[in-house]
Design a protein around this nucleic acid. Sequence first.
DNA 1: CGCGACATGTAAGCAGTTACATGATTAT
DNA 2: ATAATCATGTAACTGCTTACATGTCGCG
Lengths: 179, 179
Amino acid sequence: MRNLKYAILGLLIDTQMTGYDIAKEFSQALNEFWSAKHSQIYPELKKLEQEGLVSFKIEISGEILEKKVYTITEKGKTDFLSWMKKKSELSSTPKDIFRLKMYFAHNINKNELLVLIEDQKNKHQKRLDYLTLSFAQYNAIPKTGTPDFGDYLVLEGAVMREEMTIAWLNNCLGHLMNE
Amino acid sequence: MRNLKYAILGLLIDTQMTGYDIAKEFSQALNEFWSAKHSQIYPELKKLEQEGLVSFKIEISGEILEKKVYTITEKGKTDFLSWMKKKSELSSTPKDIFRLKMYFAHNINKNELLVLIEDQKNKHQKRLDYLTLSFAQYNAIPKTGTPDFGDYLVLEGAVMREEMTIAWLNNCLGHLMNE
DNA sequence: CGCGACATGTAAGCAGTTACATGATTAT
DNA sequence: ATAATCATGTAACTGCTTACATGTCGCG
């Protein structure tokens, strides 16, 4: 698959970055559909450099601190674009611990179940509040050619996902009560 | 985490099974929120047996074929139930290759983007059709104490997830066209 | 001077997939 | 007979997380 590879190349297409910057992006903008820790990113950048898909120059920050600023190469751009245009299979079913528990719901009593569902609902509600706030910052739909366009799409997708999850949890509560 | 452990224990609580049976469950009923291959299941069962959470007896199928039929122990039941009742954190964001591509949407042109989204929509529609059919087999909501109750909840959740995804893809198409 | 953010790496280990390997049973 | 399904395992590898390890910079 090498999906991390393409996630990194995609970020580098718009702007040069250090490994640290990339890690930050993964924990912020991309967090709703991708993530990676610095311990995975640094070795991957090394590999990409060896494959000639990125190159780096060393910049000095302050007096002595060396930063590796990575840039995507032409070869990297070609590779990324061919990946972009390829149709992708449905992502394999995401493993969901809460749904696993719900499948086994009959093993605990109604009250215990209620507590679990309410708790999950609260957690999703908090996430939704945060996402709704981020999404509200767009007062118009960004133009298709801008990086903001993709950001808008996935943010909208994230909001819808949370709303659906809360609706499902409410259904679960409903089924429990109307019995 | 040891989530596979609990997925297996949960299945064994209702009925004794072989590793092969468990693998089959993972590829059918649980497939919308959990999965595991036999190559992961057999070693895990061995471990659970060593930990005293399950036990097995050998059954002969036909003339010579030996099957290991696993049963959950009291210790296993206790362990499973304490896991069941514990509140769970939100599952870490599922990695979604298609959303990753959408985030990078500005790198390809409108037509190419359209093709990708339509393709994804078709794939999700097929999955939704299948799930709707399975869900329709319930003409009443199962009672909370029965294994069917959990199955109903997660099936409903899977249907809602696919519907939401298609709605999101339609929104994406809309944003692309109305420009 | 101390703290939080910036910055880069490696090591150990767990989770999961693909491939290797073998053989029996059942239905056609 | 032969193909699909039943049945059990191991090996090699990829992906990812947690922990280890180190040091600088900028601000108050």
